[in-house]
Design a protein around this nucleic acid. Structure first.
Length: 240
DNA sequence: TAGGCCATCTGGTCCT
DNA sequence: AGGACCAGATGGCCTA
């Protein structure tokens, strides 16, 4: 991940990421389905299975075993956290061979308590990352893009960027909807019962979650059309 | 083979 | 002290 910074697109994947970042809310829906195949395809190819990347549980990333094939087959989380304690000596020895930074490679022999503590910390960190990945999976599930077995799963960064653009798009659509409703209420003189909020397509008074401090006099003169202050007007917000 | 993506380990830092 | 969070390092897998 560190080699592919969001701000530094490089190669085909970088181009796809740049497109993803610049994707406007308007274009989101139109592109979202195609994007999964296009951008995702650019960045990730096509044949990778959805779960291929999930190497959960591979004991001390096969990397601990230089000559081992270490397939990244998915394994149960319990298995992943248990293997460490099951083969503590070997696992730790392999790690010490591989890990460079810090004191891990200084050749000092660690007390058993320290090893046990380290394994516990590793398991905790593994669990934390699994939780993070689960959350990302949940995010992928609600992002409208092509969910198909033939389409590769969105990468982490692509998921986040796509989600951001999707949120922006939704906010923009909501804003335009409000404008339209306000326009209809004003232009067509939509009558509302005295003392009641104007009718809206939503069947109730609309609220403006983004309009803070709405107790100002209405510069839009929204009350001039229906006789009552409009809850749809972001300026008066139902408070004349 | 290079590049992208990922999981894991690890040490450091901050918080409770 | 213990846990959460973070970033760097490392190596495996996959695709172009």
């Amino acid at each position: 991940m560190s080699t592919c910074l969001p701000g530094e697109p490089s190669g085909p994947g970088g181009a796809a990421m740049a497109e993803l970042k610049s994707l406007s809310g308007d274009a989101y829906l139109a592109l979202s389905h195609g994007y999964a195949a296009a951008a995702v395809g650019l960045a990730y190819g096509a044949a990778r299975g959805p779960e291929a990347a999930r190497g959960y549980g591979a004991p001390g990333p096969g990397g601990d075993l230089p000559a081992a094939p270490a397939p990244r087959a998915p394994a149960a989380a319990a298995e992943s956290s248990g293997e460490q304690s099951g083969d503590e000596e070997d696992a730790f020895g392999r790690r010490r061979r591989r890990r460079g930074p810090g004191g891990a490679a200084d050749g000092r022999r660690r007390p058993r308590e320290q090893r046990s503590l380290r394994l516990s910390i590793n398991a905790r960190e593994r669990r934390r990352m699994h939780d993070l990945n689960d959350a990302l999976d949940g995010l992928r599930a609600v992002i409208p893009y092509a969910h198909s077995p033939s389409v590769r799963k969105l990468s982490k960064i692509a998921t986040l960027l796509l989600a951001k653009n999707y949120i922006l798009m939704q906010a923009q659509a909501l804003d335009e909807m409000r404008r339209l409703v306000a326009y209809l209420n004003q232009g067509q003189g939509l009558a509302a019962p005295v003392g009641a909020a104007p009718l809206t397509p939503f069947g109730q008074a609309a609220v403006y979650p983004f309009s803070a401090g709405a107790a100002l006099p209405c510069p839009d003169k929204c009350a001039a059309f229906s006789g009552t202050p409009s809850a749809l007007c972001k300026h008066c917000n139902g408070k004349p």
